[in-house]
Design a protein around this nucleic acid. Structure first.
Lengths: 340, 340
DNA sequence: CTGAAAGCGCTTACAG
DNA sequence: CTGAAAGCGCTTACAG
């Protein structure tokens, strides 16, 4: 039998009004004696106000929905951590959904979360949401949401971006400065995030340095370890490059394996650069030179904007742009030192 | 202005009873005309029944609380994935909490989740919960919970276990069969999971093979990549071994780095075995020989037991024991081939 | 086939 | 300083 506020009132010999007020710290107008009496009964019965009844009156679910394409992705799990740490401190809890890269699941979860009275949603998506869906969102969402989509979906504010282009350009420049001319790239041709922006920077950088780009230098595959591995196998089978710019760190980890299986060494035979700056990359052998972007910081920024929006601090979401940073480690060598 | 059932009733010219019944598919006793009229208004207004009002009457939050020590841990993110996939299919959504290995946060979240009317909790914890807390749990939890603690906390049922001991024993046996005699171990002396069981198996296995164990062969550190790295540095500085059994895969990844920095090669100079069987291990160079345990399967098993308990299929939780499997890959060589 | 009314467990004016 | 009563938005016997 669930204990209700009525029971507490009866047991402590006061009205339910008094119980409610004491528990919520409203009106300090009760005698200390009354307070203690009520509190004692509450403790004894381990009474917990009904979550639903309470929220029906003043809805404050203190819950945020978070949708990511893959929980096990090293980048996203770090983003989630950033979100969680910030939100937890503010008393929010997250309802976590894994869309498994599926549009349908994403929509399904959006709807599910709306039904569940979340106070806001953070949607990390590689997809460009169909325009009418976006409009529908705008119209029906009685609560704020932040898109973590690298700006794929155009909107006025709340863009949380990373200077992808600059990061990629710097990485490729570094390879060129190191004397490399034949530079491959592991990319992804889906609209997955702004991978294409990284690829654009790569091509532009080569062009800016008068390097004639060869189409077979770029291989597309999934942005996973396996994808990087497969792409590398394919790349090495059809051409030879002295350096490889990987779309992300996970692909770079796969590339390490592909290069190893080809009997080549990093960086003696081929230099490698990744993108993301995952913690693990500093422990790879050799440690990976990579373009760092603050995954946890991105998560936190999304959470901050959302909380501000919920608490009504503003109505125009601010934009936020994170710079990247090239972390130079062991995986890049001067082209002149290449042994092959 | 929030649209309520009253509005729908008014707009479609029927009673709220009718609206409610049509929406919930109760009583097929309405004329098709009435149904369509109601449904049309609902669609037009994008009416969504109030989550709290609805649940106050028949509480079915369809929400499960999940607490893990670290979201970014490769093992746990896989466990979460297993939980999520099973639960999603059954219409549940997870409220995810990261205890960051802290007892206090764990307790805080337990209480928070209780207040939030979850229907059950999966608590993955390396901690042994204080006995009185456990009893208190039993007493006050009006809902079921499953502990993912490797059986640290004794209880009657709902133990989801992995045959840790057998897995570790098999790994060390394999090293011995390969001719290794000086075998180190990266362990963890906290009560983190059943790491000690793996250490026990390691020692027993050596002893069973008449190998006199030296204390400096075992180094304790955090069960992370960094911990593995640091432990390896320490181990190699004070003794020399021809093989290394790592408490988990993350430690093994760190060991790879430590061994690399010592100027040694795997497996030519030193053989390495990990524990967990994370996806990434097959892409390491060399690929890691490891003791596989089904992380996603463990998550799913916990979710299954929980759902069955919620839906009242049983009151005595079943126990579940998963076997491990030694995956032999490139990181172990015959001792006779060791070059040093 | 449909509706008026009671009630879920709270909070909050309002009255005393 | 405290309580009786209205009301939040639903569902569900019950009556017709």
């Amino acid at each position: 039998m669930k204990v209700t506020i009525k029971d507490i009132a009866r047991l402590s010999g006061v009205s339910i009004t008094t119980v409610s007020q004491v528990l919520n710290g409203k009106g300090k107008r009760f005698s200390e004696e009354t307070r203690q009496k009520v509190l004692k009964v509450v403790a004894e019965t381990d009474y917990r106000p009904d979550y639903f009844a309470k929220n029906m009156i003043n809805p404050q679910s203190k819950t945020i929905g978070v949708i990511v394409p893959d929980i096990t992705d090293l980048f996203f799990s770090k983003v989630i951590e950033g979100i969680e740490m910030y939100l937890n401190e503010k008393g929010y809890v997250i309802l976590l959904c894994d869309s498994h890269h599926s549009d349908e699941k994403e929509e399904h979860y959006m709807s599910e979360l709306m039904d569940r009275a979340v106070e806001g949603i953070i949607l990390a998506t590689p997809n460009s949401i169909a325009l009418d869906n976006l409009l529908e969102l705008k119209q029906h969402f009685s609560f704020p949401y932040v898109l973590l989509d690298r700006g794929i979906n155009k909107r006025e504010g709340g863009n949380i971006l990373v200077d992808e282009y600059a990061g990629a350009y710097e990485a490729v420049s570094y390879l060129i400065e190191s004397g490399h001319r034949r530079i491959g790239m592991l990319a992804n041709d889906s609209r997955f995030y702004k991978m294409n922006e990284r690829a654009d920077a790569y091509r532009q950088c080569l062009s800016d340095h008068q390097i004639v780009w060869e189409e077979e230098w770029v291989v597309n595959n999934a942005v996973t370890i396996e994808g990087g591995y497969l792409a590398t196998k394919e790349l090495l089978a059809k051409t030879n490059v002295s350096a490889l710019f990987c779309g992300n760190d996970q692909m770079a980890i796969g590339a390490y394996r592909g290069i190893y299986e080809a009997g080549l060494k990093i960086p003696e035979d081929i230099s490698v650069i990744g993108y993301d700056g995952l913690d693990i990359t500093q422990y790879l052998t050799p440690s990976l030179t990579t373009v760092y972007q603050p995954a946890a910081g991105i998560g936190q920024a999304a959470a901050e904007i959302l909380v501000d929006a919920i608490t009504g601090s503003y109505h125009d979401y601010p934009n936020k742009m994170f710079p990247t940073e090239l972390i130079k480690r062991e995986s890049v060598a001067l082209a002149s030192q290449i042994t092959t």
